[in-house]
Structures are given as structure tokens and as C-alpha cells.
């Protein structure tokens, strides 16, 4: 049920493909805390990470996900590589391909960069975040976490809050959740939530309280200062007053609401500290699940890889 060479986004995946990944991840999760269950099944697979943007969680969990399965995992330090001498993305990829790389994991500041790379190399390419397009493995770990806690997707109300305009996480989640039957609301200030997002099959809202009402899942997103121009809102205090989620506002959601965040968190901006550390929060669980989901993706892709 998963025959692809690459994992570029949730836009292209079928419901069945998504469920294959989530089911595989369930088995993988046991291996994280139980090293005796690990079996070196990827010992003949080489993995290279190419991160053109910074990362803590995604990069480290990919590297560990590979190593837990016995793969050879190397990081191309982009800043110290020939990219800094002006070597193009395609040429960089072709060189890594010639070295026998089976899987390339790329994060890039430009939308579509993983797609271009995938067209030019034999290795499998995993999108670890491209511009403001997609971050499929983050969405898959979010889906895994939701399924783990709610047991289903059908009919769930999932609210994604904050800097939607710049968020590849919101977009990948919107693609995935709508395919699986959840109802998705994207909410934030009108300068950060475009109405054309509605074409993705989601509800768009600028009223946080109304958006959160009866929600099963509330997902906060980081304000991405590094991608903003021309002041989408006056200042951080106004933002957190009008659009931040604190325990008071959270009362509008269902009692058993899941609070999620892809990290890194700006504490006190999109979510208040008591919400981040509160009993509904699964933010730390998401991180562990990230390793499980990435182990599953590496396993599935290595089985399909042309070289392997």
C-alpha cells in the first residue's frame, strides 16, 4: 500500500497510503523504548540529510530513526558544503546520488525544492519541509498522535491556530486531516490566514473563541518572525491578547481536547505556559511519535528504493 519512490507531501498521498504509514509507525514506536526489539533492517540503506534551514526535532529524529534501524546516516552540513560555493541543488543531489545514497532528506526554504531534487536523483527523497508548502512528516506524526489519543479521525474538529500563511505544517495537516474525514478550521489574524485556503476544503476563521468551540484538537503554530514582512499584526502583546490560547479560552473546547504544537514554541505568544504544560497537552508525546513515524517512512521507502 505504499509504492512511492519519494515522500514529498500529503497533497499527493491517498488515505490508504497515510494509514499504511501510521500503522507501520505503531510497530516502530515500541522500538524506541525497547532497544532489544530493534533489528538493523536498514543496515544496507544509506541516508543523507540536507538541511538548508535550521532544525532540532525534525533532523535529529530522522537521524535517530535511521540509526535505530541500523542505517548509515550522514548529514551534509549545508553551510560548510559546496552549496556555499554556489553549487546548485540539482548538482548537489546528483553528487550524493553517485555516492550511493538511498534516501535523501531535504529541508529547503523554497517551495518545490524537494520535488525538483526528486526528479533528478535515483535516491528516494523525503521532504522535511519546503518553503511555505508542506512538512509531511510533521503532519504524519500529528495524525499519529491524534489517532493514538482519539482512536479515529472521522468527525473530529481540529483547529489549527496562528501563522497559517507561512505554515507548511498547517497545510500538510489540512491535506491529511480532510482526507481522513476530520473537519479542519484554520484560524488567526486576517493577515496570516488567507481566504483562498478555504479551497483546501477547510473552514477559515479570524475568531479564535468561535473557532475553538467544541474542538477535539487545538494545534498552535509558531509565529514565524523570520518569514514575515510588512507587519501582519501590530505587536506581540496584541497578538497574544487577541489570538493566543490560554486556559480560559481553552474552556470553549471539548473537555478532553488535545493541545498540540509542532515546536519550537514561543511560550506566552501562541500558547500560554499553563496550556503548554497542562494536562491536555501532548506536545512532548508528539516528539517521540515523530521518531516512530520517521522510522516507518524510512522503512517503507527503503523497501521501494530502486538501489536497495
Amino acid at each position: 500500500m505504499f509504492n512511492r519512490k519519494d515522500l514529498l507531501g500529503l497533497r499527493d498521498l491517498t488515505k490508504e497510503e497515510i494509514m499504511t504509514i501510521l500503522n507501520t509507525a505503531k510497530e516502530m514506536k515500541l522500538q524506541i523504548d525497547n532497544p532489544e526489539l530493534r533489528n538493523n533492517s536498514l543496515s544496507k540503506t544509506s541516508i543523507v540529510t540536507l538541511f538548508f534551514e535550521n532544525s532540532t526535532r525534525t533532523k535529529m529524529s530522522f537521524m535517530l530513526a535511521g540509526e535505530y534501524q541500523g542505517a548509515i546516516v550522514k548529514d551534509l552540513g549545508v553551510a560548510t558544503s559546496s552549496v556555499s560555493k554556489g553549487e546548485s541543488l540539482i548538482d548537489t543531489g546528483i553528487n550524493l546520488d553517485q555516492m550511493g545514497t538511498n534516501i535523501m532528506i531535504i529541508r529547503h526554504q523554497m517551495t518545490g525544492a524537494p520535488h525538483i531534487l526528486a526528479k533528478n536523483v535515483n535516491a528516494s527523497v523525503i521532504n522535511a519541509g519546503d518553503g511555505s508548502n508542506e512538512h509531511p512528516t510533521q503532519a504524519l506524526l500529528d495524525l499519529f498522535t491524534i489517532l493514538e489519543h482519539k482512536g479515529k479521525f472521522e468527525g473530529l474538529k481540529v483547529v489549527i491556530l496562528g501563522d497559517i500563511a507561512h505554515s507548511r505544517v498547517a497545510r500538510s495537516n489540512a491535506f491529511g486531516l480532510t482526507k481522513l474525514g476530520a473537519k479542519v478550521t484554520l484560524a488567526g489574524p486576517s493577515t496570516l490566514v488567507s481566504n483562498s485556503m478555504a479551497s483546501l476544503g477547510v473552514t477559515v476563521s479570524t475568531d479564535i473563541k468561535e473557532a475553538i468551540k467544541d474542538a477535539d484538537v487545538v494545534m498552535g503554530l509558531r509565529i514565524q518572525f523570520e518569514r514575515q514582512k510588512n507587519m501582519p499584526f501590530p505587536n506581540l502583546r496584541e497578538y497574544s491578547n487577541l489570538f493566543g490560547v490560554n486556559s480560559e479560552i481553552l474552556k470553549n473546547a471539548k473537555k478532553d481536547v488535545l493541545v498540540m504544537h509542532p515546536g519550537p514554541v514561543n511560550r506566552g505568544v501562541e500558547l500560554s505556559t499553563d496550556v503548554i504544560d497542562g494536562e491536555n497537552s501532548v506536545i512532548n508525546v508528539q516528539v517521540k511519535n515523530g521518531v516512530a513515524v520517521r522510522m516507518a517512512i524510512l522503512k517503507l521507502l527503503s523497501e521501494n528504493n530502486r538501489r536497495a
Partner: peptide, 14 residues
């Protein structure tokens, strides 16, 4: 880098 609208939203391009 492309026209603003539904397709840009779909492709994740500004």
C-alpha cells in the same frame, strides 16, 4: 512567484 489564489494555496507558493 505565481498568481495569488487557490492554485497558489494548493501549491504552497507565495
Amino acid at each position: 512567484s505565481m498568481n495569488a489564489g487557490d492554485r497558489a494555496s494548493m501549491l504552497g507558493l507565495k
